[in-house]
Design a protein around this nucleic acid. Structure first.
Lengths: 212, 212
DNA sequence: ATTATCTATAGATCTATAGATAATGC
DNA sequence: ATTATCTATAGATCTATAGATAATGC
């Protein structure tokens, strides 16, 4: 009996099922039993290929955390004028999340309820966040000194951007869970409307706006 | 053997323990075993007084959801000029959450992973949110027409305010769980810094600001 | 007699492993 | 001989209840 051709092998089938369930339910609520069922394999197979639930989860987390960190990177492609750079950063970040809408909640859930599973990634997370912060502190400082933008605490500004972007993807689908009658379409609309709104919000925070 | 004088009776002790654990861990992760242990009573007592885990949870949810909905109400004490009203609304809402920092995450967690437990509350939630929205649509419309504020989609503006306020209380403590070395003080600072920042943000969104 | 408590246990479910069995690659 | 799979089962843990026992209020 070999591998299980269709889904690219048993191991891949397990990984795929695990990823889907972990992203949807988080570490504690997604059981190995459910994962096996969804992958269409016997329960014992999970342990044959991965030894433990924690190890499967770690593989899933690894991949997805890497993706979330990557979503912050394009923010820092520099060269262009300040606002253009920042705007395209926010925009790229938002678009990235649009393609992985479950990402913010998955990482949040893990960070909050299973922080020990993130231990190994702490240095890399730290480093990424620090780098982003340093980059922006610098640029913001210069812009503020030349009077181009309002005075702001860089940490707070980063929190503005990050929490606005992330929470869009956390809250809107959750509202949909409690009120399914709102309809996918309407929720989609609200979500994609967020992007322009967030950019406008940050722009007027920095530059003011003249009642357009 | 009567009641268990100290903690105001066994029933109260169970409720208190249950509330603490449900708020911290959510419905699924807080087990009846843990609740009994924390309350210092035998496990059977939970079922003697409340019959089921679900019923204990419902009592906790009931109380806390009521509080969250109440946190939206003061936003609508009207009479004063538009911006004063809105600002005091945001501020009051933020202060309210400051006193119940676990509230946003608790309700979010329940809505996302146990929406069926919120069924009974849907009408009241709907109604509260609708009322707030209607109120603001009205006032915003007027202000926009007289050219006092920038053109905005009221739903998006409400999302701005609500997600900014709620996510402050969800993300900052969670960052603290992954990086305990940041320290309570620093986190407290970031959190209370949010309030002024959020108000400034919304104000400049509506009125612009002249680089102060 | 009623109310409160404890002990013991049922029945589900979850993670994990041991050991038998079948297929594949030499 | 190695690799993959299945069956069966161990051992934890979780929610829930039955039934015995003790305290309280008449």
């Amino acid at each position: 009996m070999k591998n299980n051709e269709e889904n690219g092998g048993t191991e891949q089938a397990i990984m795929a099922a695990a990823e889907e369930l972990f992203l949807e339910k988080g570490y504690n609520r997604a059981t190995t039993t459910m994962i096996a069922a969804k992958a269409g394999v016997t329960h014992a197979m999970l342990h044959y290929y991965f030894r433990s639930k924690e190890q499967i989860f770690t593989k899933v987390l690894d991949k997805n955390l890497e993706e979330l960190l990557a979503s912050f990177r394009p923010v820092m492609k520099s060269g262009a004028p300040f606002w253009e750079t920042l705007e395209s950063g926010i925009s790229t970040h938002f678009d990235y999340l649009m393609k992985h809408p479950e990402l913010p909640n998955f990482i949040f859930e893990t960070a909050r309820y299973n922080p020990e599973l993130m231990e190994a990634y702490k240095p890399r997370i730290r480093e990424t966040l620090q780098r982003i912060l340093d980059f922006h502190i610098d640029v913001l400082q210069k812009e503020m000194e030349s009077g181009n933008i309002s005075r702001t605490d860089p940490v707070q500004l980063m929190l503005d951007i990050v929490t606005l972007n992330l929470s869009a993807f956390m809250f809107i689908p959750t509202v949909g869970k409690v009120f399914p009658e709102i309809g996918e379409d309407r929720l989609e609309q609200m979500l994609s409307g967020r992007k322009a709104e967030i950019i406008t919000l940050i722009k007027s925070r920095l530059y003011g706006n003249s009642h357009e």
